[in-house]
Structure formats: C-alpha cells, structure tokens
Design a protein around this nucleic acid. Structure first.
Lengths: 206, 206
DNA sequence: CAGAATGGATAGTGCTGCTCTCCACTATGG
DNA sequence: CCATAGTGGAGAGCAGCACTATCCATTCTG
C-alpha cells in the first residue's frame, strides 16, 4: 500500500478512505492483513483524482460514476450511463415555470431530432437553468437557444467520434466519463479563449 | 428586511450573512437600526442564488463576481472581467507537462487567431485539464482538440451576439456573468441531449 | 408605552473530505 | 527466535464552508 501511495502521490490515509467509501476496489488478498495492488488501482486513483480535482465532483458522485464504470462496461449506451451517474440537480421551480421550460425544450427537441423523457436528470438540469435565466431577465440568452442547440449537435458528433476512435471496449465507459467530465472543462476553457479573441476582433481597432 | 426576505424567499438570517460577507450591499439608512431595501437588492439576491445554486460557485467566488459587476460596469472587456472573477484553478503539473500543454495551446491559438498570456487563469485551467487527460491516457480526446476549438469559435460568436442583443450598458457585466456561468450550464445540458440523440442515431436500427 | 421587529455581533450546526490514532496482526532482518 | 516496521481496518477528530440560531440594545408600531 505504501507503494501504491508512492506511485500515485496520494497519502495512505486517503487511499484507505477511498477504499472505505467504495471508490477503490480492495486489493488482491495475500494474507489476512496484506493485499496486493496492481496497475488498475493506480489507474483508478488517477481517475478519482481527476474527477474530484478537475471535474469538481463530490466523493458520493464519484462513487456512482465508478460503479457505472465497473458494472456497465459493455453497455451499448455508454454516454447515457455516464450521464445518469453525473447529472444531479434538484430544481425548485413552480409548475408554471416548469411547463414553460418543458414547452421550450420539446419544441427545440423536435427541431433537432432529440427525444427525451420529461423526468430525466438532464431535463431537470435544463429546466432549472432556463427558469433561472428567465427569472434574472436575460431574455437575449434564451433567444439564442436554437443557435446553441445547433452547436450542441456539432459537439455531440465530435464527442461520439472521439469515443469511436478511442480504443478498447473494456474502457469505453471510462472514456465516456472522462469525455463528459473533463470534456466539459476543456470546452469551457476553449470557449473562454474564443470569447476573448472574438471580443478583441470586434472591439479593438488600431 | 422581512419584506426583502418575503420577496426573495430567502431567510432573514441568510440575508444578514450575505450582507456580512459583502455579497449584498447595505440598504439605504433611515435610522440607526433601520434600512430600506429596493428592487436592486431583490435582483442582487436572485443573482447570488443563481450563481450559488445553478452555477455551483462558492460564496467567496460570488463575492469577487459581484465586486466585478459593481466596479467595472462600463468595462469594455466585460467577458474578460467575468472570466477573471470566475476562473480559479491551481494546476499542479510538472514543468515538462506544462510546457507540452502550452505548446499545444499556442499552436491551437495561432490557427484560430487567439492570443493569450501564459499566466492567465484560463491558461491554467486548460493546462491542468489537458495534462490530466493525457495522464489518463485518453489520446483520442486530445486528437479532436482542433475540432473542439473550431466549435468554441462558433459558440463565442453566439455569446458575443447575445451580449450585443442584450440590453443596457449598466447591466452588461451582469449579462456577461450570467452568460458565462449559466451559459456553461445551459450548454452542458444541450450537449447531453445532443449526445443522446447522436448515440441513438448511430447505434439503433429498427 | 407594551410588544414586535431591526441591524449587528457571536456562537453553534450539519455536512464534506480528509487525517490521525489506535489496534491486532504479519512480514522481515539480524 | 525476536525486535521492528508495516498492514488492513475501524473510530474519532478536524478544518472549512454555508448557513442558522441566539442574544442584544435600539426603535418603530399600535
């Protein structure tokens, strides 16, 4: 275990904590108080730290995510598995607001060939966000919704291409998780850079 | 104050806390222990709750954001102001890794006409994310970087259009903040829906 | 002028993500 | 064989965060 700690740079106490919390599978037993840890444990630790530090996920969420990675490794809908484990949001919106947002979303979905049940986690996320934006009075953002949806279609194509290019079946759920969590972060950063460049392009002369 | 609490649905104790923490400006004094709160306070409270609940920002970050909203309300580079207040990330990467990531980014920036200093917060965010992705061995994601960058350009255009369409100068920094924080959330959700649709499109027959 | 409410300060709460201490036990070097 | 160091496991402890509750002198209200 000291070796695993040295390899990963994570304190022994923290590794024990992750074991207790079920984020890290137990090592292969060699005697009642001795276990062997392999490459997969190092890899899992790296994944955990990435999700916690870069992705900003809570330990509880990481537990669900690794459970998904472990159990559904041959799932056909890998992104769906990743999404279900990742998207948690309890919106507190009135029935009226909810209806308005769902109307907006269903018409958007129709245009783009999306389909979604009204009680999926991602629907909650979007309903909550849309209602908040409206409550703050930023209509302009809502007016661009269709355009954002179009761009979302493009990025989803890229995401799926990434998954298809990306290696072996036994790690595809992990790839989906990484692509979703770190992919969000990555795109966030790129969007910022592009915004800065676009601002400069429009408003600086000379 | 009871009125403000009723209006916004936020407990009096919490409003006091926000006042103490400098998220909410003090009300207009009418006597040593009485103050009057106006429409702007209700609005500010809504903004705070949106940033905390939907955007997932900490109270400390929200303090910086509202400081930016208050002080730079006529800033020419509103998105820059929003970004500086929002992007906090301390990457712990080796010098080698950092150099590799910066190289990747500068070549990307050259292609897309972006410019960025190596010590901006968003550079740290991207360097950290890129290094993490590489450490996890998800090369496929890095291979698509150029494509993601291209999409980032498109969304930045939409973001700037949103800002231009969106109302009065005295609220433009707020609009930039909302567009950045809630815009990220919103696009996250749309991306998920589009991913699900794209998955279905590719892998279901009959 | 009694009772409720106000702004302000201080202390307490619940949760999270570790971190520390203790324990019985075992692998290892001399 | 035995001293020592390290192991897996369990419990308690701790720091930070976002509130929440209590108290207080003052002041508005009926």
């Amino acid at each position: 275990m000291a070796e695993l700690s040295a390899e990963s740079g994570i304190p022994v106490a923290t590794i024990k904590y992750y074991l207790r919390e079920g984020l890290l599978p137990a090592g292969e037993r060699t005697s009642p108080n001795q276990a062997r840890y392999g490459e997969e444990h190092v890899r899992r630790l790296k994944l955990i730290r990435a999700l916690v530090e870069v992705g900003g996920l809570s330990v509880a969420t990481v537990r669900e995510v690794v459970a998904a990675v472990d159990s559904d490794r041959a799932a056909y809908n890998v992104l769906g598995v990743a999404q279900r484990a990742l998207t948690g949001f309890k919106a507190e919106v009135s029935a009226d607001d909810r209806e308005w947002a769902m109307g907006l979303l269903t018409s958007l979905a129709k245009e783009h060939g999306w389909k979604f049940g009204p009680d999926t986690p991602v629907a909650d996320l979007l309903v909550g966000t849309l209602c908040t934006i409206r409550a703050l009075g930023h209509q302009a953002l809502l007016d661009q919704l269709g355009r954002y949806a179009e761009i979302a279609d493009r990025i989803a194509e890229a995401d799926l291409d990434t998954l298809e290019a990306g290696v072996s079946m036994d790690r595809i759920v992990e790839a989906a998780v990484v692509g979703t969590v770190l992919g969000d972060r990555l795109f966030e950063g790129l969007r910022r850079l592009a915004q800065a460049a676009e601002t400069a392009r429009r408003y600086t002369e000379g």
